[in-house]
């Protein structure tokens, strides 16, 4: 292989290796700084990933909406339009298979089956990575708080801009989940 090809190949490789994580960061940062924030009521559970560490899986309360007129297949992308309810939490107003010409914010969710006139869906931002010592404790703390009825709100703070939604943090009673776990220890 000649030297020019090796140098060119090396530069392209280096750039690609910077570009992919760089692009990931740029896209997320853009949503965090320019997007609108919504609170999604949720419950965390604690699984594991071999490379990326411990995370809590979030089960959102907002998981259904009135079925759109079009037929929606299982696992298909659907546009779920959201607004804020009187308590300050995100709520789904309607859904559609294609993007509508409106200023209302939306989430690209995965359809999870229909029942009568209801469409069930899964929100994409259901993973929140945590310190490995805190993920399980967080799940336990939330479970105990829920059982004792002292938990008034547990929500994911999500920034939404266009097609992208970034989960910035999870709050329990207005305290970030990582600090909440510390206070319970």
């Amino acid at each position: 292989m000649n030297k020019l090809l090796i140098t060119g190949g090396f530069i392209v490789m280096i750039l690609a290796q910077w570009f992919i994580p760089g692009q990931m960061i740029y896209q997320q940062e853009q949503v965090l700084s320019e997007g609108t924030s919504y609170k999604f009521k949720t419950r965390p559970i604690d699984p594991n990933d071999p490379f990326r560490g411990k995370f809590i899986m979030l089960n959102y309360e907002m998981n259904k909406v009135k079925k759109p007129a079009e037929e929606v297949d299982y696992d298909q992308d659907v546009y779920v339009y959201i607004t804020t309810d009187k308590d300050g939490f995100a709520t789904a107003t309607h859904a559609s298979k294609t993007l509508r010409d409106t200023d209302q914010d939306y989430i690209v969710a995965k359809a999870n089956g229909t029942y009568q006139d209801t469409l069930n869906f899964d929100l994409p931002f259901n993973i929140h990575y945590m310190d490995e010592n805190k993920a399980y404790d967080a799940e336990v703390a939330v479970r105990i708080a829920t059982r004792e009825g002292i938990l008034t709100n547990c929500y994911g703070l999500v920034y939404v801009k266009g097609d992208r939604a970034v989960l910035s943090d999870v709050f329990i009673d207005e305290v970030s989940i990582k600090d909440y776990v510390d206070t319970k220890e």
Binding site: M13, A16, Q17, I20, P21, M24, I25, Q28, D49, F51, R52, G53, F55, P124, F125, N126, I127, H128, Y129, V166, L167, S168
Partner: peptide, 25 residues
């Protein structure tokens, strides 16, 4: 590097897409 960026921003990408990006790079 990709794993940490996914972690920092809670990017929910699946394991296959994570591995695919890694392998291609």
């Amino acid at each position: 590097s990709i794993a940490l960026v996914s972690q920092i921003y809670n990017i929910p990408g699946s394991m296959p897409s994570f591995l695919l990006t890694w392998i291609v790079l």
